[in-house]
Design a protein around this nucleic acid. Structure first.
Lengths: 245, 245
DNA sequence: CGATGCGTTGAAGAGTATCAATACTCGTGG
DNA sequence: CCACGAGTATTGATACTCTTCAACGCATCG
């Protein structure tokens, strides 16, 4: 397995990619590079840093007693992480692809900056708020009834988050195992659901990890039975389970 | 159904209960009172306020096309909510019990205060971070395999969050329907799991909504997956899904 | 080229959702 | 005070989806 680990560089300064929100933080950041599968931090390690992905992708996950794994989130360039802990980390975060680069911010210093710069504080706050929203949205996916709905919602989420061009196929950075642990189902079921969608002509595979949504409307119908991300969607049907007359 | 709605009061000032973190915010807050089942805000409504529960309890939820519901979070006194939206709310939040009181903070003003007071900004930030952690932890519960594990984890969470005294029984503010929509399962299955735990002597009911954990250790084992009754389940399987050699 | 990890497919069993019926709780009104 | 009714909770039987176990195809790599 290629490059062994964690070469740390520093002196990284300005932006280079989209929306560098915390420019006054960058002066204190260092940069680190990781091989596929290697941890950025481990569960239980002291939470002394904040991180931001510069390139590549990561998975944030928890491990169970009998070795099972649950993936809490997939992270892409631009995403902050590591702030979800008071003293020690409650999850591990690992690189998905080789060459994943991460900006590392010393937490104490970063918080000092936030305290003295309302702009920075506001960006961090908004970032945290949107994290809450994103995780809550994930809850809705996990709560979906069927495997097909879960996988369908997952595809929309991934296409939104990991597409490089505006149209065309998207390459998923994660394995079927990762998808399974993200959606809390068996890898075989993930595979079957994808095959199902492919046979229906809803999606098309360039190769195993690279796919394209051919029939967006059908895929939306597959996911239906639940809520659309944005949009009014008024018509309240509270007949059952309302708790209100 | 009793008191119709939303009597608004104001002039509420200082703390009264644990850890009033945002004292300089309280001067701008008003107070509102809600009957059971009534919404604090609806999905799609403008996100112009932040809220904090003073007494009672709430559910934050989303509704699907066919009337199904998913509960994203239960909220207790002290919890902030309503910040998880940019422009309009993506979820509804409704009172669980009659007489639920909520402090309401105008968002713009609150953000101005946060911009000028690093202390406040920091508290809000930490609150948001811990929200992220809490929701992520919920993901792990939802990802649990069996109904028994889900309900067991749920009980621990509720006992932690909704106990009034240090020991003794806990009264759950939510119905079985609420629990079902929170755990993404059928109410009948929730009922069966609770009955199962009761018959095993793991929990004891004072009445339908009020229960006590009698055998904490067994309940922990239930949540650790596969143990209790019939035993052929302990196959180790951590060899797969490593992602690293 | 065989090795290793990943991905797909098949068959059997387990667990949950669903449908249906019954019991319980509490507020209302006779 | 008790009866009633609506909402809530439990229990049972059946269908169905998903997990599990197993085997095989397919890539990459030493």
């Amino acid at each position: 397995m290629a490059t062994p680990a964690i070469a740390t560089a520093q002196g990284w300064s300005a932006s280079s990619d989209s929306a560098s929100p915390l420019s006054s933080l960058e002066s204190m950041s260092t940069m680190a590079r990781f091989a596929a599968g290697h941890p950025i931090y481990l569960i239980g390690s002291p939470a002394d840093f904040w991180y931001r992905i510069l390139s590549g992708a990561c998975r944030m996950c928890a491990y169970g007693f009998d070795g099972n794994r649950q993936i809490v989130d997939f992270l892409r360039p631009g995403d902050f992480f590591g702030y979800d802990a008071q003293i020690v980390h409650s999850f591990s975060t690992e690189a998905l692809v080789s060459g994943t680069t991460v900006a590392v911010y010393p937490r104490r210093s970063a918080e000092r900056v936030a305290d003295s710069d309302p702009q920075v504080a506001r960006r961090i706050r908004e970032m945290a708020f949107s994290s809450v929203f994103r995780v809550q949205s994930r809850l809705l996916i996990l709560g979906r009834a069927t495997a097909l709905e879960k996988v369908g919602s997952f595809l929309f989420e991934m296409v939104d988050r990991f597409r490089t061009r505006l149209v065309g196929p998207v390459t998923l950075p994660m394995s079927r195992y990762d998808i399974a642990d993200y959606l809390a189902m068996a890898t075989e079921t993930v595979s079957r659901a994808l095959t199902n969608l492919r046979e229906q002509g809803v999606i098309r595979f360039e190769n195993v990890r690279c796919l394209q949504i051919r029939d967006r409307e059908s895929l939306e119908n597959v996911c239906r039975g639940s809520m659309s991300e944005s949009g009014p969607m008024s018509t309240m049907k509270l007949y059952r389970r309302s708790g209100i007359a």
